[in-house]
Design a protein around this nucleic acid. Structure first.
Length: 497
RNA sequence: GGUCCGAUGGCCGAGUGGCUAGGCUCAGCUCUGCAAAAGCUGCUACAGCGGUUCGAAUCCGCUUCGGACCUCCA
């Protein structure tokens, strides 16, 4: 690890960029709030998971052994904060006429498909809320024992005011409890709570409720915020390194999480670095289902959506998102996607030409500095995972590769290896960018490739005979099939558009 | 209403006191039978007003516009 520059992370809790020092190097614990599986994920969700996928990849790249925990929320997420708020899963089950666990399975499968399509690494552990009901009940007991929660009509609520006397409720989100109180809207059906600020740890279920479990207080279900406190503690301990999630979870979800953990143990902040990914916007507004401006990855790929001029590949979208920093809002537009598509194409062409790069036995250019490129790459990532800067350095490498390929610059075999390792490491391992394989099956692809090679060879012969008509006929016909020909001094090559 | 954040060239998007971000687009040139690809060159911007400073896109103040959170949200 010594050869890499230090890693700095913007910590939402302290609002400072801090040197990252793991609690127990070389181990790193990272918890990320996963999806509530009651509907298809949209592109905005994808952005957050991409942010932490890259963090996971880079930490691993640095040599850390990362335990990456990302939960599945399959119970407890209510449609509103009032007492008659319905569980999102239960509601969807009613609407789709399915068992709640069928809903959970259906959308969990969808989520995993999407993660795969965008080349996200699987987390080390993917726990679900329903699998940890016992632990959640235990944590509620601990919080009650410490006096920070109370029972009311079979439900249990967290006592925010009492907690705030001993600790700082609002430390993460920068809120003052009195401001919160003054600005809390009056919601119906909050009679059970002593204070509008209090939030549910356990909710008593009515007779029609589909998902419920026995507890010391009632047949019911856990509150939404509780699962993350419980599962992060169970798999990463009461203190761990990184906690991530979307910006919109900062309050109240993460604030409540801190309160629960602190309330249950008496120990202050259990998370050392809080990271929050910013929102994907459309025409300046947050992409959200309620706005009707969200689209699913499938719509994105097919282009079958009013906002999309045409389809874009998952890698194009991945690359597009990585060209912005995770902490900034990123505005979606067709123009930006198309620009990213071309840029990615240029990057991947350079990657593909690495194998055939010529190496000169003599006089490699002195100014070629592969190690320097590598330093700039790791410095960029070390500065709060600054992928846009990393990509700008990678394009310098692309320029170098192209110059070598066209004999303008010479390198030796050692430098070629270093360049190949560098690009492979940052493009594939860190950024998770892969070439998008043609859809054709392998053997057919081989056959087609052989035919294309033959056509290119025939065209080469025609060119040698200055038979431009034949040469252009072949080129134009292939262009019509979506295959372009590139001529160079050493001959011609083909590639699919 | 409260809290916080943002405004960068034709477009997207980094950068936070002096030094070329990068990608895409556009124009010219080189190479090439032509084209494509590639390379080179050019287009050199920081919402407005005021202040601090030898020097500000970058710090401070005000103004305008936009957004997020405060309710479920990645």
């Amino acid at each position: 690890m010594a050869e890499f520059p230090p890693l700095y992370i913007q910590n939402s809790l302290t609002r400072k960029k801090e040197l990252f020092t793991p609690l127990n190097a070389p181990y790193v614990g990272m918890y990320v709030c996963g999806p509530t599986v009651y509907s298809n994920v949209h592109l905005g969700n994808v952005r957050t998971f991409l942010t932490f996928d890259v963090a996971y990849r880079y930490l691993s790249f640095l040599g850390y052994q990362v335990r990456y925990v990302r939960n599945i929320t399959d119970v407890g997420h209510l449609t509103g904060d009032s007492d008659d708020g319905e569980d999102k899963i239960g509601k969807k089950a009613r609407l789709e006429n399915l068992e709640p666990m069928e809903i959970v399975q259906k959308y969990t499968n969808d989520f995993h498909d999407v993660m795969r399509v965008f080349n996200m690494k699987s987390p080390s552990i993917e726990p679900s809320a329903t699998g940890h009901i016992v632990e959640q009940i235990e944590m509620i007991k601990a919080i009650v024992d410490r006096g920070y929660a109370y029972e009311s009509n079979g439900s249990v609520y967290f006592n925010v005011r009492k907690y705030n006397e001993d600790h700082d409720y609002g430390a993460l989100s920068g809120r003052k409890i009195d401001d919160l109180l003054n600005n809390t809207r009056s919601l119906d059906g909050q009679d059970e709570k002593n204070d509008p600020l209090d939030f549910a740890l356990w909710k008593k279920a009515d007779a029609t409720h589909l998902m419920k479990w026995p507890s010391p207080w009632s047949e019911g279900f856990p509150g939404w915020h509780l699962e993350c406190s419980v599962m992060s503690t169970k798999y990463l301990g009461t203190q761990f390194d990184i906690h991530g999630g979307g910006m919109d979870l900062k309050f109240p979800h993460h604030e409540c999480e801190i309160a629960q953990n602190t309330g249950a143990t008496g120990e202050a902040h259990s998370v050392r670095y809080w990271m929050h990914g910013n929102m994907l916007t459309v025409n300046g507004r947050k992409m959200a289902k309620s706005e009707g401006n969200g689209f699913t990855p499938e719509e994105l790929i097919t282009g079958n959506h009013a906002l999309l001029e045409r389809g874009y590949s998952p890698m194009t979208v991945r690359f597009f998102m990585l060209q912005g920093h995770y902490a900034s809002t990123l505005d979606f537009s067709n123009e930006a996607l198309q620009a990213a598509e071309k840029g990615l194409d240029r990057l991947m062409n350079a990657m593909n030409s690495l194998d055939t790069l010529p190496t000169a036995a003599i006089e490699p250019n002195a100014e070629v500095d592969i190690a320097g490129l590598g330093t700039r790459c790791s410095e960029a990532m070390g500065d709060d995972f600054n992928t846009p800067i990393l990509i700008s350095v990678l394009f310098d490498a692309v320029k170098l590769v192209n110059s070598i390929a066209s004999d303008r610059i010479h390198i030796d075999a050692t430098q070629k290896d270093a360049l190949t390792t560098l690009l492979g490491g940052y493009v594939h391992d860190v950024l998770g960018i892969e070439s998008e394989a043609p859809t054709a099956a392998g053997s057919q692809e081989d056959e087609a490739g052989a035919l294309l090679d033959l056509l290119v060879e025939l065209r080469g012969n025609a060119k040698s005979n200055k038979d431009w008509g034949t040469a252009d006929t072949i080129r134009d016909a292939l262009n019509g099939l979506g295959i372009s020909i590139k001529d160079s001094k050493d001959g011609s090559t083909w590639e699919r558009d």
